[in-house]
């Protein structure tokens, strides 16, 4: 304040110098904010890790699977989220068409990621969250789901069904694996 009151008497050079200083303060502050801000924000967006490569999990003995009717199979599998490494219970939907041909669906609704259930009476999968309905082959019958149920990679070895667990991005028309 005291200094500002002297402005009328001060010289042209001094005024320019002060204007320049104010400008410099603003620029420096902005640069500092960006130098720290960009990395800080980047940290919040999380690591852009590639979709995690999972191991094969033994899920069921093929002989014991019922013919042509979906079964919710549960198995323990390694899961890694950030720094947590747990063994978690996973579930997949398995339909045995023939001893050689088995479809395996991820249990996660392609809409927003709820777990859907099988309605035996109506012969279809139904999601409790927003009422998406899927046919036994995974096609969308009705509801907001943007794509058919996600199939999971599977193979048969020594009479056992092995499945590779994966997560996919919810709410988009294409099946994109995510971490």
């Amino acid at each position: 304040m005291e200094h500002d009151s002297q402005i009328p008497e001060m010289g042209h050079v001094e005024a320019t110098r002060r204007r320049f200083l104010k400008w410099l303060i603003a620029v420096l502050a902005a640069v500092n904010a960006l130098i720290a801000g960009i990395p800080f924000l980047r940290s919040l967006l999380g690591p852009s890790v590639a979709a995690q490569k999972n191991e094969w999990s033994k899920v069921a003995a093929v002989d014991l699977l019922p013919q042509d009717s979906p079964v919710d199979m549960r198995f323990m599998a390694e899961s890694g989220e950030a720094y947590l490494h747990n063994t978690v219970l996973r579930s997949v939907w398995v339909i045995k068409h023939s001893p050689e041909k088995i479809s395996v669906f991820s249990p996660v609704c392609t809409h927003l990621g709820c777990y859907y259930q099988w309605n035996g009476q109506a012969d279809r999968f139904e999601c409790p969250c927003h009422a998406s309905v899927f046919a036994p082959d995974g096609k969308v019958i009705s509801g907001p789901a943007p794509r058919p149920l996600d199939t999971l990679e599977s193979k048969i070895e020594n009479g056992y069904l092995l499945v590779k667990w994966e997560n996919f991005k919810a709410g988009v028309p294409t099946k994109i694996p995510v971490a």
């Binding site: 979906p70 079964v71 919710d72 259930q117 309605n119 035996g120 409790p128 969250c129 927003h130 009422a131």
Partner: peptide
């Protein structure tokens, strides 16, 4: 809820 499911009772077998 948004679903019109009957009071859900998944087939036990499944």
């Amino acid at each position: 809820g948004l679903a019109e499911l009957p009071a859900g009772s998944p087939a036990v077998s499944s």
